[in-house]
Design a binder for these strands. Structure first.
Lengths: 338, 338
DNA sequence: CTGTTAGCGCATTCAA
DNA sequence: TTGAATGCGCTAACAG
């Protein structure tokens, strides 16, 4: 087989017709005679023709590609987000290009720059935990490049967002612990600035207040979300003179680290300390004890974010930003039932 | 800000020089006067110029993009593969485009077609569990499109592959169980045709034979790798008149399903039945009991596969296919120590 | 219904 | 050291 891909020109030459006719036939243009179209299609098939999307993109100034930026790929939550995005994108004729920021702000900026220069038609972004300023997002707005934020968002920008109801989820989790009789509920959170941390903290506080319980500052701690930091903070909590009888962890991976520490110290879950996570990772029900957690519909979040972005691409003028907040359900398992 | 991205033409116009000079200056061509280059660079900066990669790609017939096809994204193993690929690709100036086949053969073919029409410079592929024929791969070879297979490979093709030593890993796992005193070791495998299943079966059989133990056909079962199938087969094994005293699962997710069934039946691990997995998922040490498993260097596999492909792209003529087999280490934990 | 023509943004050959 | 001209593969006026 000859090197170099087959082009519409090759088809036109073989068939002794013009390349525009071939182009039209391939695009199912209605103005082409059925017979001609069939001949073209047959020849394309025979020559194993694959349209050059690069040339198409240059011509129509659209790549039919969405850019995705997530903090991390090897996380079940973000992987599911991406699955939802990808399935939706394919269904609507789009490809995706994925970058991970590794939770690094500079990397995030660089990822966005890379995707822009690849001329993606729009972006779906979940911010890194380091991201505190947002000129890079403002820059996208200035350049009129459509994008949607999901899960790790920032508020106050005139753009669409998709999140889970973090506050409500945390509220449900905390309320559940209170109803189990827990008196001193610790909240092992992530970086203070992170959107989801602030939202979940609000839910935690709301539940305590509603039940006439004070928010004890020493029970709210902020992890860097590394195994080391998670474990150290757990130990700190256990070292308190007035030890907590429950720990609400910002997410399941953190809860797992907490669990490891508790077990290594011979503490019983939930008898000595109850434990609740957030995310509902697939393994959370295989842990011992099975982990009570707040379910996040990750695939659905991805699906909605993608549909939102694609709607925007279809109708750039009429589009109005939408903020979708999904419900989050508490999954009660053994780690919290006293 | 005006709609439409800035082009080299805009820079040329502003500076009253030709676009070819701008093009050269931007590419650091040595034949450009330093002063001119600096002026161009400054203006590019000022106008917020981003090169149009689409146009470049069309011109030089290279996209600097690698295509990746994996069975599934929401799997820690493949996500780590991809991380390794991506980091390597970026380091060498390439982007990646990712598709998932969802373990479906037709989807896999379609993914490859999509990536080809996006004109990726090369492909990294891990086959779906349904894939039994390989005309679609032969087609790539015929069209001289470079690609590398990793983990889920097929043998006999003149191309590079990266795998872990599946046979050795399974051998180590089985030998370990034998040394723990297990007499009837079941192998809960995946689909019979899958490369990794065949390889791991070979290691399992080798260990048994070396220790003078017969391979009992009723102890080797093939799951479809769904939770349902995994659990049903586990129950079947337990229902045997001559029940196994150990189960070696084809991977960690399967082992987790086995664990759930065993626990639900009140069986003790490892006392009643020892259990070993394969993959070393991050949570495998958080399970109760912690799971003995064979470690797979997923990130490293991705890194090697990407480097192999990129070497090939750098020097298409001189390149010789290489098959890399990584070592796999047995991680002994509690689920197997009698 | 089909052909001719003109770019999309860029790199590169050939001239100057 | 720079400019003019060409074409990558394709789509979309505009003409027949």
């Amino acid at each position: 087989m000859k090197k170099g891909q087959v082009t519409i020109r090759d088809i036109a030459l073989k068939l002794k017709i013009s390349i525009s006719t071939v182009s039209r036939a391939l695009r199912n243009s209605p103005e082409i005679k059925l017979e001609t179209r069939q001949k073209v299609l047959a020849m394309a098939e025979k020559l194993n023709y694959t349209p050059n999307v690069v040339a198409q993109s240059l011509r129509v100034n659209k790549t039919k590609t969405l850019g995705i930026v997530v903090p991390e790929l090897a996380s079940h939550f973000f992987a599911s987000n991406i699955s939802g995005i990808q399935d939706t994108a394919y269904k609507r004729g789009y490809n995706v290009m994925i970058c991970q920021s590794n939770e690094n702000f500079d990397q995030e900026k660089s990822d966005i720059r890379t995707l822009i220069s690849s001329r993606v038609d729009g972006l779906l972004i979940s911010l890194s935990r380091e991201t505190k300023s947002y000129e890079h997002l403002q820059n996208l707005i200035d350049r009129e490049i459509p994008f949607v934020l999901f899960d790790r968002i920032i508020e106050g920008l005139p753009i669409s967002t998709v999140t889970v109801n973090d506050t409500l989820g945390a509220y449900k989790a905390t309320k559940h612990l209170i109803e189990q009789g827990c008196k001193r509920i610790a909240f092992l959170s992530g970086p203070e600035g992170m959107y989801i941390c602030k939202k979940r903290l609000a839910g935690y506080e709301k539940a305590l207040q509603e039940h006439g319980m004070a928010v004890d500052a020493e029970l709210v701690v902020h992890s860097e979300l590394t195994e080391r930091s998670n474990k150290a903070l757990t130990e700190d909590l256990l070292a308190l003179k007035n030890r907590p009888d429950a720990i609400f962890a910002i997410n399941d991976p953190v809860a797992i680290d907490v669990m490891k520490v508790l077990k290594s110290k011979g503490m019983r879950i939930p008898e000595d300390i109850a434990l609740v996570g957030f995310t509902n990772m697939p393994v959370s029900d295989a842990l011992e004890p099975s982990l009570t957690t707040v379910d996040q519909p990750a695939y659905e979040m991805g699906r909605l974010a993608a549909n939102n972005l694609l709607d925007q691409l279809m109708d750039p003028e009429g589009f109005q930003p939408r903020s979708v907040v999904l419900d989050s359900e508490l999954i009660v398992r053994k780690s919290s039932q006293k």
